[in-house]
Design a protein around this nucleic acid. Structure first.
Lengths: 341, 341
DNA sequence: AAATTTTTGATTTACGTACATCAGAATTAG
DNA sequence: CTAATTCTGATGTACGTAAATCAAAAATTT
């Protein structure tokens, strides 16, 4: 049988009330007594029954997700996963709410973060924009003892407790190697389609991509980055223009969202040119394009894992517990047409 | 506030005892009364508080993992992950034990499975050998109402409740495409190193690999499979012999374990030949070889995820609950030197 | 040594569910 | 219509922890 608080009391030769005071860090215990109890806890190997404790406390975890609006499939997927998590609230003792802010809007994000002060939250998750104001707002929340998790896009240099997303530099490097190896030594140009250089994840992907390209595939020339603002229409226009303007493009790396537009452009203009294409985010559109050979590889982060991980981390942080590190590492999925889920 | 059993009783106009009889499927309730209670449960949206229920029941989950012995890093990793899970037993109300059986030994596995009858288990997980006897033994356990999960290697056609492992046909297909594309149109021979054609996962990987090779890379010729029994020494000998006997080998796919031996052979014999190599299972050896360029890609299944998933599924099955499907899908990890964890 | 403060003990209630018991009500069989 | 049977209600205890109260003991101050 697992030891209980009663066993601690017996082992330490004190009363239950004293054990409780030590366990829950309540005042009114002499140092020597506290140490006696702590020794007993270690000796008998007591671990608090979290389920019973939560039951007694009537604990619930009010959590908030701050998400950008946006007409791309990845964000739709992210919303869907958060809503999925809401349906599990009853089981998980969570109370999840979503706050929407306009995409790429630093001021709105800061305002949303500041509005959280004073509410009785157990944690906040946000898709960060990499700006000093946002960093300051996050730091204020952390200072106010609120567990904060960044989602998808990180905010390094801030005091956020955790980042639930992939290593984007590694993602960019991986894309470069896939593209470089798939092109098998051919000479030519490679073009990169990004969303916005404002968000850290896109900047990091580009950085990783460019560095491996330069170091290992010198026969490939990197063209200036196209910024499509994660918008299918803009992406379509930019890629169409680039492809009709040059015959030397042999590879494309799309590191943001809005791939619907890219795919449309590829089918219209890129047909039969033997382009090798690597994109991010598995959606119904990229999946179809992978299957029909329009694109060659999809790098993906599993939004469901990210959301569930963020929730686990916020709850654990709120309780001062630690998490299974390996379980919370968000992996970069690489999909070829053969291993689609 | 969440509705409780008291709320059901009030809403249905019956006593707590009757609600309890309905909820726990105890006898002694008229059909009309039962339906009244069930309607009330639906109406007020009651969901049982599993934590409280488990507390009241004093529920623990005795689980057993049946694992093959074997001197390869993957199995070592699997053992380590199960032992890791044991350290979390106190939190997760599990009581995990490990049963070791000799690798590739059908009779021993069947004996181990049969020995589980009569014990009070909440679930069993096994690395299956694909044989009729094993299938029958698993079916007997399932018939005896024991949740059974296959781990790493599946047992299709059996009544096992769940498979915690990757899609090995897809893994083989993916390996073929990586190898084929990385070889960039070159002509030559490709050799396959397997563990044993007795285990289903190896057979399936080969099947997937061969089919994509034949369909999409006709310029590559598949040599007869080398069976290394997942043993580093045997693998080393086989690969060394193959490489010294032929100059036309340009690609190698190692779909089993024992890659230490393969890597040794590559460094000794394959040096400077420009071989492209894809292997399975990320271990310290394959990681180092990936980093120094001896091999080009590693396909991996995360043993930690598999073990944790198996535990979640066994617990849920024991309670008659359902699981989050997306969370239990074990993904095929593809590692290049750029995205190593 | 008395008065005061701090520390500790004993006890109770609560969380939401499970499970057992026994008495009383309703239903069915004879 | 009575007896036997089947349902239902009322009640209490338990699980392991949290949290509160009040009394008693110990330590500290005056």
């Amino acid at each position: 049988m697992r030891p209980t608080v009663y066993d601690i009391a017996a082992a330490a030769g004190v009363s239950l009330a004293t054990v409780d005071r030590v366990l829950n860090q309540r005042p009114g215990v002499r140092l020597v007594t506290r140490e006696k109890v702590e020794a007993a806890i270690r000796d008998i190997g007591y671990v608090r029954d979290v389920a019973a404790a939560n039951l007694a406390k009537g604990r619930v975890y009010p959590l908030v997700f701050i998400l950008p609006t946006g007409d791309n499939s990845f964000m739709h997927g992210l919303y869907a996963e958060v809503r999925q998590a809401m349906t599990r609230s009853a089981f998980e003792r969570t109370e999840i709410s979503i706050v929407e802010v306009p995409a790429f809007d630093t001021a709105a994000l800061v305002a949303a973060l500041d509005a959280l002060h004073g509410t009785d939250l157990a944690g906040a998750a946000l898709v960060a924009i990499d700006a000093p104001d946002v960093r300051a707002a996050v730091d204020r929340l952390v200072a106010a003892r609120l567990p904060v998790v960044t989602l998808v896009s990180d905010l390094t240099g801030s005091t956020r407790h955790h980042y639930a997303g992939v290593d984007n530099i590694a993602a960019g490097r991986t894309a470069a190697r896939l593209l470089g190896r798939f092109l098998g030594g051919r000479n030519g140009d490679v073009t990169v389609l990004a969303g916005s250089m404002l968000v850290r994840d896109h900047r990091e992907r580009l950085e990783g991509f460019a560095s491996v390209m330069a170091a290992e595939f010198p026969q490939l020339r990197l063209l200036p980055v196209l910024e499509g603002r994660d918008d299918p229409e803009i992406a379509n226009a930019l890629v169409s223009e680039a492809l009709s303007g040059s015959n030397s493009i042999i590879g494309i790396y799309s590191l943001g969202a809005g791939n619907r537009g890219l795919i449309r452009a590829l089918k219209a203009t890129g047909h039969g040119r033997g382009l090798t294409v690597v994109v991010h985010e598995l959606t119904e559109h990229t999946r179809a394009a992978l299957q029909d050979g329009t694109i060659d590889a999809v790098l993906n982060q599993d939004a469901g894992h990210e959301v569930r991980s963020a929730i686990r981390v916020m709850k654990a942080t709120a309780d001062g517990q630690d998490v299974i590190a390996g379980q919370e590492r968000i992996r970069l999925d690489i999909f070829l047409k053969d291993n689609l889920p």
